[in-house]
Amino acid sequence: MGITDLLTGQHVVVTGGGSGIGDGIARLFAAQGARVSVTDLRAEAAAKTAAAIEADGGTATAITLDVTDEDSVTAGLTAARATHGPVDAVVNSAGAWIGGSVTEVSVSDWDTVMSVNVRGAFLVARGVLPEMVDRGSGRLVMISSVAGLKATRRAGAYNPSKSALLALTRNIAIDYAGSGIRANAICPGVIDGTGMDHTVRAFRNGYTEDYQRWVTELHPLGRLGTPEDVARCALFLASDQSSWMTGTSVVVDGGCMTGY
């Protein structure tokens, strides 16, 4: 993929960039000319994505970052700025899924899911918003889920966390619009082959032909999503192509919400 110019000269931080949706976003953004700080809790995963970007002629740096830890977020963003300069955009893609109804998930499970999916996005936003306010521009893209828009059985921690992330997005949008900052969210359907997909399938006994047929049929377009499907929407929201959009959520789900 050749380098084009939608994000040329822009410094973008991608959390959870070492795999799945985050990896797809980091690669596409780099192909569009961005300098990408690939952050992940797993150092080797971040390094693998960054190396692949560099091999394709892009610019990327791997940063180990725990989105649930304020000191780690501060240190990671400081390292990102030291390499690539001020942060122009952030994509919060780090996520966690633990299955179970409200009485099945433990308090520890609840805290883990909320910490990664909500606290993490909150801490990263807090870490970049002051500089964006000072510069009068910035974009935040939150990776939520269709699970933040509808209920699914035995997801008593995950669904509330993704709904909360949508609320956080709206609050950032309305509070910082006057400073030239935009915040939007993406709600993907089932993205095939990601770590989260494997976790959900293991919980729901999903490695069968019947399950594959059922979960595919939930998406009227006849296939599950790919990280690239989400990445293309994230690129739109992180670029000036969406300059009159803020505080909204874009559903990228192969028609799942419509068919549901």
Rank of each mutant, 00 (worst) to 15 (best):
G2S: 10
G2W: 12
I3F: 09
I3S: 11
I3V: 09
T4P: 01
L6G: 03
G9M: 09
H11Q: 08
G18Y: 13
I21C: 07
G22R: 05
D23R: 15
D23S: 14
G24Y: 05
I25D: 10
A26M: 03
R27S: 10
A30N: 02
Q32H: 14
A34D: 06
R35F: 13
R35Y: 13
V36W: 07
V36A: 05
S37A: 12
S37V: 01
V38E: 11
R42I: 06
R42N: 14
R42P: 02
A43T: 14
A45F: 09
A46E: 11
A46G: 10
A46S: 07
K48D: 15
T49Y: 11
A50H: 09
E54L: 06
G58A: 05
T64N: 10
D66H: 09
D66T: 10
V67Y: 07
V67C: 03
T68G: 04
D69C: 12
D69A: 12
S72T: 14
L77Q: 08
T78A: 15
A79K: 14
A79Q: 14
A80S: 15
R81P: 00
A82M: 09
T83H: 14
T83P: 01
H84K: 06
G85N: 11
P86F: 01
D88K: 03
V90K: 08
V90Q: 07
N92K: 11
A94N: 12
A96E: 14
A96L: 14
W97R: 04
I98H: 12
I98V: 12
G99V: 04
G100F: 13
S101D: 15
T103K: 08
E104P: 05
V105G: 06
S106F: 03
S106I: 07
S106T: 15
S106E: 08
S108H: 13
W110Q: 03
V113L: 06
M114H: 12
N117Y: 08
A121G: 08
A121P: 04
V124W: 13
A125D: 02
A125W: 01
P130C: 03
E131A: 00
M132P: 00
M132G: 00
S137C: 00
L140F: 00
L140T: 01
M142W: 03
M142V: 00
V146Q: 13
A147F: 14
G148R: 13
L149D: 05
A151Q: 11
G156M: 06
A157P: 02
P160D: 08
S161M: 07
K162F: 02
A164S: 06
L168W: 06
I172Y: 00
A173P: 00
D175P: 02
G178S: 01
G178D: 00
S179H: 08
R182N: 01
R182Q: 07
P188S: 09
G193A: 03
D197E: 05
H198S: 06
F203T: 04
R204F: 12
N205L: 10
T208H: 07
D210N: 09
W214Q: 12
W214S: 12
V215N: 11
V215S: 12
V215E: 14
L218Y: 08
R223Q: 10
P227S: 11
P227K: 11
A231C: 02
R232K: 11
F236Q: 04
L237K: 07
Q241T: 02
S242V: 06
W244C: 02
M245Q: 14
G247T: 04
V250S: 05
V251W: 09
G255T: 06
M257W: 10
T258L: 14
